[in-house]
Design a protein around this nucleic acid. Structure first.
Lengths: 171, 171
DNA sequence: ATGACGACGTTATAACGTTGCGTACACTCA
DNA sequence: TGAGTGTACGCAACGTTATAACGTCGTCAT
């Protein structure tokens, strides 16, 4: 049984409220691990939580300028992202060269992302059964998995509904 | 039950022989579809088949220069790759910004790639059961999948064996 | 204080990908 | 046969994403 998906476009999961929660969890996690959750790292994570879609590194640079009037270079942002990823707080959407906050950093798990081609919304789910199958395939090959990249591109329910309104078609 | 993986680093699947076979299959497929399998497209596919690992677009540009003494620009190569991908002859490894020939273009299927962090070898497998699970998850979300990106990064059997020889450790 | 270390700043550059426009060649069809 | 059409390719410039290399600063244990 899949764990209930918790879409990142769900109102309960986005915006100021979620950002604050995300930062709080990240703070305590890093604290527990002895990892330094610096101002910059916190700011980057906050910006990702406040965004409603995967955000590129250079976009983050722009946002940091606006938010903090602090000009930061690419290496700085990439380092922050690398740290956040190493802590499981952020994931990279490889097919978009963009970054999203992990919905549940407190759990160690492989993320599966559904990314809408039209509105760019990304939804993160967990599916332990699917992970198990990948593990089995890996074992067959004698391959040791370090990182899983599972990204499904297509059309989200909202965009399908919207386009169906214009030009209805069967499922 | 998973279809037997057919690793791209399997001798039967690589080198001149495999390249020739790959080109032959591609030729007949394109012919049947009324798609133009031009000299350039064929050459790019051939280079991918001859490589033993995912190959970047700019690397292909260099290889084309060597092979054909023909200087081609980035747009030309990207267009060829786009065509080859549209025909299911080539897949992009998103986490590497690199391209591999599809082992079995004659079948329509979602590819799963195992990519070694150390030697860069990539192995392509099919797993219909896994695809079915992804489809089910998508259905739960009302998401229509257009393209699957499944890439497992880690250490291949050969590299594990090699490093185990140096510093043995349990599985 | 001082030496070690981790985080961050800065400049430049590598690597990857696209836009826009022009030309050549093949394929129809009058 | 020659005009019209569409697709592939050439080319210059540019845009985007990511990293290398090196320097500075603050913190902390000795």
């Amino acid at each position: 049984m899949s764990i209930q998906p918790r879409p990142r476009n769900d109102p309960r999961c986005r915006g100021q409220r979620a950002a604050a929660e995300g930062i709080a969890i990240a703070t305590s996690l890093c604290d527990a691990r002895g990892a330094r959750f610096t101002k910059l790292r916190s700011l980057v994570l906050e910006l990702l939580w406040e965004s409603d879609r995967p955000t590129g590194a250079y976009e983050l640079i722009e946002l940091l300028k606006l938010k903090d009037s602090r000009p930061v270079g690419p290496p700085t942002v990439y380092r922050a992202l690398e740290f956040l990823m190493s802590q499981g707080l952020v994931a990279k959407i490889e097919s978009r060269n963009a970054y999203v906050p992990c919905a549940h950093p407190e759990r160690q798990h492989g993320c599966i992302f559904f990314v809408c081609d039209q509105c760019s919304v990304s939804v993160e789910i967990e599916d332990p059964q699917l992970e198990a199958m990948l593990d089995k395939d890996a074992e067959t090959l004698g391959f040791r998995i370090a990182r899983r990249v599972v990204e499904l591109q297509g059309t989200c329910a909202a965009c399908r509904a919207a386009s169906a309104g214009v030009a209805p078609q069967g499922v």
